[in-house]
Structures are given as C-alpha cells and as structure tokens.
Design a protein around this nucleic acid. Sequence first.
RNA 1: GGUGGGUUACCCGAGUGGCCAAAGGGGGCAGACUGUAAAUCUGCUGGCUCAGCCUUCGGAGGUUCGAAUCCUCCACCCACCA
Length: 399
Amino acid sequence: MVQEALREIKRGSGELIDEARLLDRLKGWFERGEHWTLKAGFDPTAPDLHLGHTVLLSKLAIAQRYGARIQFLIGDFTATIGDPTGKNETRKPLTRDEVLLNAKTYEEQVFKILDPAKTDLVFNSHWLKDLGAGGIIALASLSSVARMLERDDFEKRYRNQTPIAISEFLYPLLQGYDSVHLKSDMELGGNDQKFNLLMGRQLQGAYNQPRQAVMTMPLLEGLDGVQKMSKSLNNYVGVTEAPEEMYGKILSISDEQMWRWYELLSFRTLEEISALKSGVASAEVHPKKAKESLALELVTRYHGEAAAQAAQAHFERVHTQKALPDEMPTFHFGEPIWIGKAFLEAKLINSTSELRRMIDQKGVRIDSKVIEDFKTELQEGEFVCQVGKRRFARIRIGA
RNA sequence: GGUGGGUUACCCGAGUGGCCAAAGGGGGCAGACUGUAAAUCUGCUGGCUCAGCCUUCGGAGGUUCGAAUCCUCCACCCACCA
C-alpha cells in the first residue's frame, strides 16, 4: 500500500529529496490515519492558470488521495510589495484588492482539480508582514552569501556581472520561512524552485523542526516545444480558454512534445501511455489520432465531454477539410468600399501596409479567391474575407 | 562620492557623418509541403491607396547641405573603486 502510494506520488516527478520522510508520513496515514501537510506556493500575479500550472496541481490532487492536506499558499506578501528586480519587465506591486481578486480566481480554477475539503488556502502576508526588520535580519543571518551563490542563476549572473538585487536573496529565505511557519511535511514545486525548496529544509532545521521532503516537477514546455510554458512567452494553453482554442492549440504541438504532455498532464496510467507510444512507433496508430485523444482528454477535463466533442468537430471542419468556420464576425457597410478600409475595420489587418504584404504573399482571399489587386473594392453583396489561415470575417455591403 | 560603460525596431544585437527604414540572429506572419503537425524551403516583418512621401535609433536642443552616428544639457540603467 505504502509503496504503491509512493510510486503514484513520484510518477513523472523530477527529483524527490528525503524519500524517507515522505515514506514516514505515508505510513502515518496508512497505519494511523494521520494527515500530513503538503505545501505548494503560487504567485498571485497570474490569475489565469495554464496547463503548465496544472502539472503541479494534478500531482497535489493525487497526493490528496493518500492523506495529504494541501497548503495552497498564495505568495501575496512579495506581490504587494513588488519585486523591483524584474530583469525585463517591471512588476508593479499589487494592491490588497487585486490579490484577493486573483486568489478568488485561483479558487475557481484550482478546484476543478483539487478537493477543497482537503485544501487550506493560506496567504503568507499573514505571518510575514509582522516579521519586521529585526525578524528579517535574524532570518537572513541563518544563511550565507556563499550559500546563495550556490544557486545556479545567481552564480551565473554574478560571474557575468549582471545585477542581483539584495531582495532576491531574501525571497528564498522568506519562502523557506513559510515552511517553518506552516510546519510543512513536504513541499512541491517546479524544477526551477529546487533551491528555494531546499531553503525550507535548511530553515526548518535551524528552527529545530523536522525537515520537509522536497519534490520537484519538471516544467512543462509550451506550444513551441522549447521554452517553458508561460504567459509572457505566449506559448500557453489557459485552462479557461474556449474549447475550440484549447483543442486547436493542443493539436498544434509537435509529435515529440505530445509524449511529454501525456506524461505530465494525462491521467492515464503509464502502461496505457507506453502502449499508445509503441502503437505509433509501429505505425499501427496514426500520430494525429494519439494527439486527438490527448486533446480530447484535456478539453474534457476543463469543459466537459460535450464541449470537447464539439471542439473536435469544429477543428475537423475548419482545418482538416478547410471549410469555413461556422461562425465569424460580421461587418456591415452602407456603400462599396475599398478592402483596405473594410479589412482594417474588421481587424483582419493591422495596417494597410500589412495588407499590401499579405496580398503580395497571396494570403488574402475573398470568397475563396486569391486577391491580387491591392485596390480591390467590395461592391454590393456579402463576402467571406480571409487573411492568412485563421483570420476570417463576413463583410456585407449595401442595405 | 569617484571612474568607466551603456540606452538602436517585438526581443537580442551590429552600426561611430551620406550607399540607413538601419546588418545578423531569435520570435512572429504568409506561401509551398502536411496531419492547421513538427522539420524543411521561399518570402515578408515602421506608416501611408507605396516607382514617391512621412515618422523612427532614451529625451530636449545644437553643429552640418546631410546625424542612429559629432557637440551640449537632462533622464534612466550597469559595473568597478570608496
């Protein structure tokens, strides 16, 4: 029993540090029904979850089956202060209200996956805001600059003479202190969080607490298959996205990437997945079929089965058969009009220069006919206008 | 406080008086090929009804026939020394 639980929890994970501690807690659950605490921290700045976040969430959900109480920590403290470091973008501090609003959004999205009865939503500002300068300095004295520089990115930046703000040293400490306050038995985080997670162990030790086990999850790559999935790179699939969008995006990932997503996102067993994989390898199963099945599973999870089926049908019609979408925005003009004006109005293009380029590239169609003349005018009637593969609009001229 | 370096288009980054709407790469877009795959190939990637014109190289002035490039001031960023 305990071993099976351990396998389930470890499945797909990156690294598990202090397996003995986790085993101990699992035994406690199976033998005496004792709950154990599993902490995971989230940044309240991004209210829209994407599939990358759900890698962690799914793992938490599995742990709940084996006695874990989830300490779902919203890192609101740093968010309301703001991190001036932001190498490329300046993160502006969030107000209390914004944080609460974001937390609310979290609740709505997260509980599609997690069991609310076994989840505690906690905000670290509750204990951090009263820490005070003295508290922070005391905390800071528990670690060293050398230790901080062990962290890969700090080390690199230091060596390359790119700036490191002092506050950046503070964040791992504060995150570690969260574990002390919550007396966490285990903490789960992304691969990139390893250093911070380990800081929790170090600080718990300093406070004479048992040290938390630490498990990291690999980061899910985004639609490009290379960079991690993130909003700012715009390579993400949001969990609240429309079913058609979600389905289409999932089908656009590479075949190679598909297996990664299966591993980290699908609820299928490892055996099922490897069966599918060998099916594709031996050409018994078309890769597209395997991908469709992944897309269906995920869209069903967030939108229900009916919506997922509809999304698939939509995709087949529009993309595979290159038929027109059944719905597209409609625009109406009273008199004959130059396509440049009409398309601009319909947001099919961003500028008339873009239109010029698109026409040169044979990317503009009206009623499925490629347009060659930049000066084309639309006369009375109704036209289906298309720019590129996915920009459509219906334009009606006349009364 | 001192010294030095930097600020170029979506991002990185070349450019140090005209040939610069600005190299190269990344990203993005379009077309071909497909499974709207991926990979690959080709082209495009400031605006304007475009052989031309207009606005852009941190900001404001100035020198010059001509400035991303030279000068002055300002703002911001970084490193090193204290």
